[in-house]
Design a protein around this nucleic acid. Sequence first.
DNA 1: CTGTTAGCGCCTTCAG
DNA 2: CTGAAGGCGCTAACAG
Lengths: 335, 335
Amino acid sequence: MTVTIRDIAADAGVSVATVSRALSGNGRVGEATRARITEAVARLGYQPNDLARSLHGGATGTIAVLVPDITNPFFPELVAGIQAVANERENLLLLCQTGEDASTAVRELRHLRRKRVDGVVLVGGLAPDDALGGALAGMPLVTVDRDTGLPARWSVRADHRSGGRIATEHLVELGHERIAHVAGPARLSVAQERLAGHQEALAASGLEVDDALVVHGDFGEAGGYDALRTLLRRRREFSAVFCSNDLAAVGALRALDEAGFRVPDDVSLVGFDDIHLAGYLRPALTTVRQPIHELGRRAATLLLEHAVPGGAERHEVLEVSLVRRDSARSVRGRR
Amino acid sequence: MTVTIRDIAADAGVSVATVSRALSGNGRVGEATRARITEAVARLGYQPNDLARSLHGGATGTIAVLVPDITNPFFPELVAGIQAVANERENLLLLCQTGEDASTAVRELRHLRRKRVDGVVLVGGLAPDDALGGALAGMPLVTVDRDTGLPARWSVRADHRSGGRIATEHLVELGHERIAHVAGPARLSVAQERLAGHQEALAASGLEVDDALVVHGDFGEAGGYDALRTLLRRRREFSAVFCSNDLAAVGALRALDEAGFRVPDDVSLVGFDDIHLAGYLRPALTTVRQPIHELGRRAATLLLEHAVPGGAERHEVLEVSLVRRDSARSVRGRR
DNA sequence: CTGTTAGCGCCTTCAG
DNA sequence: CTGAAGGCGCTAACAG
């Protein structure tokens, strides 16, 4: 049925060992025999079996990435970065979705281990789970934006706190004094950090930190929309909103629009992430850019180069920057 | 180092065959021995090795999906659908990106074959390539939105032509007579079909089909933006635009905005796909909805249930529908 | 019900 | 440089 190394050995009149050496590149093989072998391989259409190859304990050439939800545009960009370096090194990428559910993650991790993947990139938050430690044990692991829970020896993340700070600083510079914040899920450290940065900037400017101006969303459009409506319902004055991510800003924009507020004329808006779409919104979204693709590349590189059981611990923090577009401007009107 | 079936056999005082049977569920095993085995498994922390399991010819429990670009929001939604059924059946999903490049696809397909994946879902267009047929030979394959090139025995797609028709019909019903079309890449059949549907509707209404009102984009925001600017530069009158996909509509919206046209007051706009974002744009985008998630589910189901070498051919076409939101309205102003 | 014995396809000593 | 032999971890006939 399927042609194996033995078939081509017979065809080329050599032993399987020689064929193996010729194909894997290990060990010297005579010029003439090598030619006969490659010829036979081509003619018989031999397809190596990686299962057999890695059964000996070698690498499988496959890594996995676990994301909360591939449908959120942040994650595809990240996955693309991971994929890019995986491909460069001829690795395949397994995609898993956790839905931020720890037990799902544990189940997937177990499955991945049976498959003997070479390593895992774990993205985003996960509620602590007793079984998680065991499922992760001994598995080369790089975390992205996830510094809670289990201790990870290799990690990559953006500087969310500083991002929150520069977003709000920008708004302050524009003259805004009452700045609302649509935060992410309170349990996620990235949301906490962005909020902390926001409040830090407020405090540094001597502005009042009003808890009524902070609403938590879910990092989705719907969450941003709802958050803004609650904010509006509170009838507290504010002239600017800093949204914890761009998707929430999309929802906020919509809620503001429906309520009759113009952005940026009546209310200024700043997002976070700089997903590809941000530049195409109307108005184009001023936002804090994280190098999403690069985060992915770093994570994969760390995994493939450094994340070996004995390797030295390593943590990377990438810088963020403000991208000024059209959704934030000097204060004029105000609610 | 790693604990194998043999270790637990020794520990439980039985043979490896019995352990194998106990774990795989094939063949009867005594109650008492089974208990000893499961106990040993738990205590020793045994992790089955799927490589060894599938080496002798069984399925690997892994399928792959090849998409042009995971960064385009259409694909993550599709992948999520595929993933959902893959998970239900305890399959893992390998993600590959082709960039619509046939030689990349061929390389990836070869790699997937070495890995002995159980099947592949191929999404989107691919230039014909001589090596493609060989790379695909004998591999269970389901195509999505891809009816050109190699003959596929299993496929899933939406009814793009009918989608193009209802989009334009809607605009006609609203009184528009000069309707522009931002098409997708001319080489892609889905783009051709949507365009054909559009022209069909125009003809059926006795409206003039003006080639100067059709511009090709690339299914991205930038493409839609550029397309609309070329359209504007042509200075042909039009009061509505049908964009071949939602992302292009985002770009078109922006170009229109910059040129001083209000949507839908000055120009009506209809998109295609109904990606999640569509409902959150301002104005909320009227669009042709394809059941993206369902397309993914069907594709995976077809692959896992029917796409066996001997199985009967099967092609599914899913219905599309118009989602009326706020970007299209009765004709008033006009360019 | 359970043990023995072959492999699955490939790589890797160890001889020659 | 090349061949023979053993084994990776597991499953699948066969026997008992």
